[in-house]
Design a protein around this nucleic acid. Structure first.
Lengths: 113, 113
DNA sequence: GCACTATATTCCTTAAAAAGAATATATAAG
DNA sequence: CTTATATATTCTTTTTAAGGAATATAGTGC
């Protein structure tokens, strides 16, 4: 039950949903997400931690960067199914569509000074 | 987006999830839910309102009682899909299983004095 | 070693949700 | 019309989550 409600709570925040939708297109480091959402870096880290605990995203260190990507869903069946549903959901949401367009132009080398 | 996060938030509370799982077995009035969950009546009404706004449950007046039942999902696709998923999810959760057993013995006539 | 950068964590403040008590509405029965 | 019952609503308090600033950790390059 806790696994289920944790997944639901993780996805009840718009910024976290946006992160999931962006990660569907490419894995991103914290500073890319920060740039895309215009949020302070600590906020992004905290949102990512909540998503990670819910089994929705995973991370991989690459030197100084930490790349976040969608989880394979092996942690909980809820996360797996929700990630599946979110593949098509919200694609035509204007805010989401705008973000997806935006991140295609983002370049990590320009973001991280 | 708001529809989606509202549905998620509605299901991020354990009591509300319990209500959904009980309503899978029979439609219930407020005082039955109150008895099953051992919650004060205003809390139950408020939880039900949140579930209703999220498109997860609907209500029907029957004299003095208000019967709540699972929504048909026509309000939002998110509610419809989540209700579908929840059909099998959490069935083996001990707390849920206990509740389902409990409500089979509940009788409205004994509850509402 | 030192300086620099990306990310994480902590602490504090603010906003939002839940719990609780009291009251209001509405329907039924006498 | 009064009483009683089921549910809803309001208001207040408490808890929980989010935002923000500052700091800590951990790599990288010199």
């Amino acid at each position: 039950m806790k696994d289920f409600t944790a997944a639901m709570k993780a996805l009840s925040d718009q910024n976290r949903v946006k992160i999931i939708k962006m990660l569907q297109h490419k894995s991103m480091c914290v500073c890319e997400i920060k740039a895309a959402l215009n949020l302070p870096q600590p906020s992004v880290s905290k949102h990512l931690k909540i998503l990670e605990k819910a089994g929705l995203v995973s991370s991989q260190k690459d030197g100084l960067w930490v790349n976040y990507h969608l989880s394979d869903g092996s942690r909980t069946p809820y996360a797996a199914t929700l990630l599946g549903n979110l593949r098509h959901w919200l694609d035509d949401d204007p805010e989401i569509a705008g973000l997806v367009e935006k991140i295609s132009f983002l370049n990590r080398k320009d973001l991280c000074k």
